[in-house]
Design a protein around this nucleic acid. Structure first.
Lengths: 341, 341
DNA sequence: AGTGGTCGCTAAACTGATTTAGCAGAGCAT
DNA sequence: ATGCTCTGCTAAATCAGTTTAGCGACCACT
C-alpha cells in the first residue's frame, strides 16, 4: 500500500532547499523568514510529486494522529448505530480527522483489547458510545486523554451527549393533549428494570417522567399502564390486546418505542380497529418502520446523527464536563386524531 | 492520550540489555542467540512497565500498521451496514487488526478525501464496500495495495465478496414448489433499472434468474409480475392491491425484498385476507421486520456479517482474484402454507 | 574598523521502533 | 601461539517527519 510515495526529503531536494524549509512552508509556519520564492518552489515541488505527508512519521514527533477512537458496545443490532457513526464521521471529516471504530460486544476482554489497540495507535481521543442510553463505567485506561461519552453517562465527571428523553416525553404527551385526548390515554411499555436501573436504561425513566409531568400540568392522569418485559413488537401486541379487553377502551396510546407501537398496530388491526379514528398512537425513536406503517406513526426521533456529530465536536473543541442534551424532534404523522365520539 | 508510556528503551534499560535485544525478544525472533536469562529479564521488565509498542514508530520501519481501511458508500441508511461492519470487525480482531472506517456518501470529493486520509495513515489494505450489491469503479489510488470488494464487483480483476442471490432465488422458488404451489405464483418487485444496470444492482437480475430457473425446471411459469419503481413498503402495498384486483388471485407471492413484503402484508390485511391461509408470502433479505410481522415472514437472509468477515480474511490471507459467493440461508417461517382449496 | 541586528536558510537532534553489521570473549584444534 | 568458530550481545543506521539551535551574508550605525 502506498509504495513509492514522495517524501519530504524528495520535495526539499526538488525545491533546492532543506527538509526544514520544506516542512515549515508546507505547515504554513508563521514567523519563518523564508522568501516568497522559496515558498513557491516548495509548493510547486510538492504538487508535482503528489507529496502527502506520512502521518505515522509526523505523529511520532508531534504526538497527534488526527485519529479518534470510536468504541461502542454494539454497532450492529440496532439500525441507529449507523446514524451515530455517520454523524461522527461527518464531523470528523470536517475537522480532518478519521475514525478508528471498534465494538466490544459488552465483553470485558474484547473491550480491554480494543482499548489497547487504540492507545497503541496513539489516538487523539476516545468516544465511548453505548447503543442504549444508559449509565456505564468507563475503563480507566482511556482516562489518560480526552474522552466523550456518547448516549451514556458515568460516575466520572465527563462530557457526554444524550438525547433529551424527558422533553420528548413531554412533547408526546402534549401532542395528545393538543388533539383533545384527556382521560383516555394509556401507556404501553412500563418496565421496572429499565426504569429502575440507570445501567440498563436512562430513557425509560426520563420518558415516563416527561409524560407524567406534561399530563400532570394539564390535570390528567393515565388511564392505564401496561408493563412489558422487553420493548419488542410481540410485547406491544400483547399489551394492546390486554388494553382492548378493558373498559373503557383508551382513546390514545403512548408506546415507549416504535417497535412496541408496531405490535400495537398489529393487535388493533386484528381487532378491526382503525388508527387514528378509533385510537390514536404515538411513540418514541422514529425507527424507519414508523414511516412505513399504515397509517404512518407519529413519534419523537432519536437524533443519533446529531449526537454523533456533537460528540466529535466536544472531543476536538475541548468540552466542559457534563451532559449535552440533544432535542428529539416530534414527527407529526397520521396516527393522531381527536378522540372518537 | 497515552502520555508516560514506557518505551522499548525503558524496557531494555530495566532488563540491563540493549534495545536490539529487547526488540528481538519481544518479537520472538528465531535464530537469535540471546540467553534464556535475557529473555526472562526482558519479559519481566515489559510486564512490570506495562510496555506496549508504539504502532506509529514500528510502522515507520516495517511499513505495516495492522490497520485496514473500510471505505463504503453509505453506512447509515440501511440496517445491514452494521452487520457488514460487525463481521469485518470480528475477523479483524481475530487477526490483531483494526478498522479505519469512512463513508463516501457516493460523493467523489469525499471519496478522494477519504482514500487519501487512509493512505496517509499507511493502511495495509482496503475493503471497498457498497451497500447495495452492484458493480462499481474502483478509484485507481487504492490499487497500489491489497483491495477486496465487499458486496460489489468491478471491471478490474479483484477479489470480491457477494451474496449468492441466484441461489437464493432458486431456494425461494423451491420453497413454494415444496408447499405445492405451481400456477398461482406471482412476483412483486420487477424493476427494469435494477435488473438492467449492474451499476445499480446485481441482486435484482440474479434473484429473478434464480427464481425463473427453479420454476422452469419444474415446468412452472409465473402467474403475474408486478413492476415497482422502488423496493419500499408503499410499492409493495400498491403492487399487492393490483394483484388482488386480477383474477385468478395468486396462491403465493414472491417479493424481491422484505420491505415490499411488508407493504404486501398491509394490502392483504386491508383486503381481509390471511397469510398464509389465503396467500403465502416469501421474500429476500431477512430484515428485522420479517421476524416481527404477524405471521412471521419466510425469507432468505443477506449474510452480511459473514460477508464482512470473509472480506477481511481474503484481504489478510491474500485472495485469488474473482468472486466469493456467500450463501443466503432460507428462513422458513409462518408465511408459507399449501395453496387454499 | 568594529559591533550588532536582521535576513534567509540549514545541520542535527529527536520521536520509538526494527534491522544490519559486527564486536568481544570463550572454547577448540593445529 | 595462532587461527577458527561459536556464543551472546550491542552500536548505529534507518524509517519520515518536526523542531531547536545557529550559521553566514549583508546592512546600518557608531
Amino acid at each position: 500500500m502506498g509504495r513509492n510515495r514522495a517524501t519530504l526529503a524528495d520535495v526539499a531536494r526538488r525545491a533546492g532547499l532543506s527538509k526544514t524549509a520544506a516542512s515549515m512552508v508546507l505547515n504554513g509556519r508563521e514567523g519563518t523568514r523564508l522568501s516568497a520564492d522559496a515558498h513557491q518552489r516548495v509548493f510547486a515541488a510538492a504538487e508535482e510529486l503528489g507529496y502527502r505527508p506520512n502521518v505515522a512519521a509526523r505523529s511520532l514527533r508531534t504526538r497527534k494522529t488526527a485519529t479518534i477512537a470510536f468504541v461502542s458496545d454494539i454497532v450492529a443490532t440496532t439500525r441507529f448505530a449507523g446514524d451515530l457513526i455517520r454523524g461522527a464521521l461527518d464531523a470528523a471529516r470536517e475537522r480532518d480527522h478519521v475514525l478508528l471504530i471498534t465494538e466490544t460486544q459488552g465483553d470485558a476482554t474484547f473491550e480491554q483489547y480494543a482499548i489497547e489497540a487504540m492507545l497503541d495507535r496513539q489516538v487523539d481521543g476516545v468516544i465511548y458510545a453505548a447503543m442504549a442510553t444508559r449509565r456505564l463505567t468507563v475503563p480507566p485506561a482511556i482516562l489518560g486523554g480526552p474522552v466523550v461519552l456518547l448516549n451514556a453517562t458515568s460516575a466520572d465527571d465527563l462530557p457526554c451527549v444524550l438525547p433529551d428523553d424527558d422533553r420528548a416525553g413531554r412533547s408526546v404527551a402534549a401532542a395528545l393533549l393538543e388533539h383533545g385526548h384527556r382521560d383516555g390515554i394509556a401507556l404501553i411499555g412500563r418496565n421496572r428494570l429499565k426504569e429502575g436501573d440507570p445501567e440498563v436504561s436512562l430513557a425509560a425513566e426520563a420518558r415516563l417522567r416527561g409524560i407524567r409531568q406534561a399530563l400532570g400540568e394539564a390535570g390528567v392522569t393515565l388511564l392505564a399502564e401496561s408493563f412489558c418485559t422487553e420493548w419488542l413488537p410481540e410485547h406491544g401486541y400483547a399489551a394492546m390486546r390486554g388494553l382492548l379487553n378493558r373498559s373503557p377502551r383508551p382513546s390514545a396510546v403512548i408506546c415507549m418505542n416504535d417497535r412496541l407501537a408496531f405490535g400495537a398496530y398489529q393487535a388493533l388491526g386484528e381487532a378491526g380497529l382503525t388508527v387514528p379514528d378509533d385510537i390514536s398512537v404515538i411513540s418514541f425513536d422514529d425507527d424507519p418502520i414508523a414511516a412505513w406503517l399504515r397509517p404512518s406513526l407519529a413519534t419523537t426521533a432519536l437524533p443519533h446523527e446529531q449526537m454523533g456529530r456533537r460528540a466529535v465536536e466536544l472531543l476536538l473543541d475541548g468540552a466542559a464536563a457534563g451532559p449535552v442534551l440533544v432535542p428529539m424532534p416530534l414527527r407529526r404523522r397520521r396516527s393522531l386524531a381527536p378522540p372518537a365520539g
